[in-house]
Design a protein around this nucleic acid. Structure first.
Lengths: 235, 235
DNA sequence: CGCCTGGTTGACCACTATCAAGGTTAGTGG
DNA sequence: CCACTAACCTTGATAGTGGTCAACCAGGCG
């Protein structure tokens, strides 16, 4: 349970201004570091003295059980904030999935900012609210949705993310492995594969390569993510 | 999708000072209303213009799918805050499970307080952090735990809650039905019953009546809530 | 070129859901 | 206070979704 960050390839870069998100641009000035794929930024239980913002790449936050079962709680893409907690220690582990650059701010520096800057406060509340909102959806998915609904919901949310990035949403990039997706959706990688196979067979999606999905029938996919859908797990 | 609060039996009472939680006592002064069991305080989608604090009784927060599947996201007991969101509308529905008294503060009143009062801000952040922390555990439970682990985890958390209330933790009160527990744990009420039956048969718990559980072997229960436990679902 | 990780598909099976029936508790009205 | 009713709880039989185990394939890197 110790830091692995800087040793790996923590290439601490220049001070860089904020990305587009939020109104208080000054807040998000900090040291940027770049890391290779599959590097650990912090581990569950580490002292939570930094807050991160993704500049590029994808980060994966997860919790482990003693026997190795894993629950991925979030994938973070460019612009997302993570590692923000009032607790002494991080509640989960953060790994890069791809090569990734993250901006890193000291916890106490952030606290000062929050104390003095009302806009920063509003920003922070928004960040936490977004997190609560998406966790709420995640609870429903994990507690009550079928495998097909889980995968479809995931693809829909990735489509929405792509469109927020300015993409057309016809094709989604999946920087994570099937295993990562499975651990996010509370199923196995085999089930993820099978469901993708079904969706492909029914002409809802294309899978040109394993990290790229073409969405042919977005409406059917959205239906499958909720309920009353004609798509089932069985062939 | 409209308020049902005051009509039912919303007995709006006097202004009452705060319970023990938090440092800024003045914040939590508001109108207290008392409601019967199984009353709806607000529905998912209602404008989120109030924040609540439980004075006594138990509240249940949940989300519904179109076909009736339900995910309970939280049970709130005396001292807990709910209905706190930066969104326009509530993300879930709030029902009383028992007769319950809640204190109710206007959203904009709270916003003012937060703006001017640093202690109130700290309080609020703590509340949101607690929520994030428990949701994190809930995600792991729903995504990766077996039925036995889910029920055991639930019983352990209810025991911890009872002890925080000053009880000895030997006996836990369950104000909710088996169905409520099932919808919280992402399983069915039949499975909840069967697991309780197993735990009873193995001498880990007693069930004097269906809303009261005696914990005979707290250590075994805790083991069962994590992993590497000898307790299984099968007889 | 070969290994190793990740992906896919199949066969089989277990956990938990579903369906069903009977028992118990609690609430309501006489 | 008691009887009736309905909701809740429990247990059993059966079935199905998704897990496990295993084999094979594909691509990237040493």
């Amino acid at each position: 349970m110790r830091h692995i960050v800087r040793e790996t390839n923590g290439n601490t870069g220049a001070v860089v201004p904020s990305l587009t998100s939020g109104n208080s641009a000054e807040l998000w000035i900090g040291a940027v570091s770049t890391h290779g794929a599959r590097q650990t930024l912090f581990i569950e239980g580490d002292p939570a003295d930094h807050v991160y913002k993704v500049i590029r790449g994808t980060i994966c936050l997860y919790t482990l059980m003693a026997d190795g079962r894993r629950q991925v709680s979030r994938f973070c893409h460019a612009g997302d904030i993570f590692g923000l907690t009032a607790m002494e220690t991080y509640p989960n582990t953060a790994d890069t999935l791809t090569v990734a650059s993250v901006m890193c701010i000291r916890r106490n520096q952030l606290d000062n900012e929050i104390h003095s800057n009302a806009a920063a406060r509003a920003d922070l509340l928004d960040v936490m609210q977004d997190e609560l909102k998406s966790m709420q959806k995640h609870l429903l998915l994990l507690g009550r949705k079928t495998a097909v609904e889980r995968v479809a919901s995931f693809l829909v949310s990735m489509t929405e993310h792509a469109m927020r990035e300015g993409k057309d949403g016809q094709t989604i990039e999946l920087p994570m492995t099937r295993m990562d997706i499975a651990d996010y959706l509370g199923i196995t990688q085999e089930t993820v594969c099978r469901v993708l196979g079904q969706l492909k067979k029914k002409g809802v999606i294309q899978v040109p390569d394993s990290h790229r999905i073409g969405v042919l029938q977005p409406d059917l996919l959205e239906d499958a993510g909720e309920d009353e859908s004609t798509l089932t797990y069985a062939a």
